[in-house]
Amino acid sequence: MGGSDKKERKILIVEDSPTMRQLIIFALRRLKNVKIVEASDGVEGLKKLQKDVFDLIITDINMPIMDGLKLVSIIRRDEIYKNVPVIIITTESGREDRERALSLGANAYVTKPIQAPEVLKLVEQYLSTNQNQL
């Protein structure tokens, strides 16, 4: 794909809290050529992943219907998404939670309350890494 810099990148945010979704969207407002799609739980997230192809996924862990860890394990078995960066944003700060999420295939683990610059930096980093791999 030529002109990859101008290619629109898509980010899926899976989070049951609308406030949190708005916070993440606000944190990523400086990103250029990025389309952000929202989902309020793991099942809705999977549906959106099937409809479109995303360059990065941000997900919460504690969500109704399907939690974030289950979502990550499904994503990693999918041929299209097995290498797509996944960032977990959660209130769970325990070492076990972190290790479990990372062992399931998450790339980064961020705890709430989030710091917008930290999230933005991570997303920029993973988007550029993903772009280099394409």
């Binding site: 809290s17 609308p18 406030t19 949190m20 916070l23 209130t91 709430k112 309350p113 989030i114």
Partner: peptide, 14 residues
């Protein structure tokens, strides 16, 4: 519900 979300996600209340 929004107040609860805010206290968890923005203030950091457990």
């Amino acid at each position: 519900r929004t107040i609860v979300e805010i206290v968890i996600n923005l203030i950091g209340g457990e």
